[in-house]
Amino acid sequence: MIVELTQTWYLVLAALIFAIGATGLVIRRNPLVMFMCVELMLNAVNLTFVSFGNMLDDVGGQVFVFFVLVVAAAEVAVGLALVVAITRRRQGATADDLSLMRG
């Protein structure tokens, strides 16, 4: 039995990547890896946009991906600078070590 490939499959795949990214961000302690997980989620969103765009026969989905890319690039630049700044002072700091403020 041959299963027909529909656009829905892309959406399911995207949802799976999104969920993996969301889970990974909680599981991992290394801030760099946490950022990577955010990137995974953004990619899942991109895939969703393109698929919806195709299903709606609309270019809007693809335009949106373009902007998400820009935002992701800006976020990474800032995020990594932040990690560099923190690691300089606190060698090997994980996200859990950054818990001075609580309660």
Binding site: T8, L16, A19, T23, F52
Partner: peptide
Amino acid sequence: LLGMSLIALLSSPDVVTGAPSALA
């Protein structure tokens, strides 16, 4: 999260419900 997203995505047979080609 995955389950909820899938329910939302697969809730209708056509998946998308929007107006087609709204932009171009």
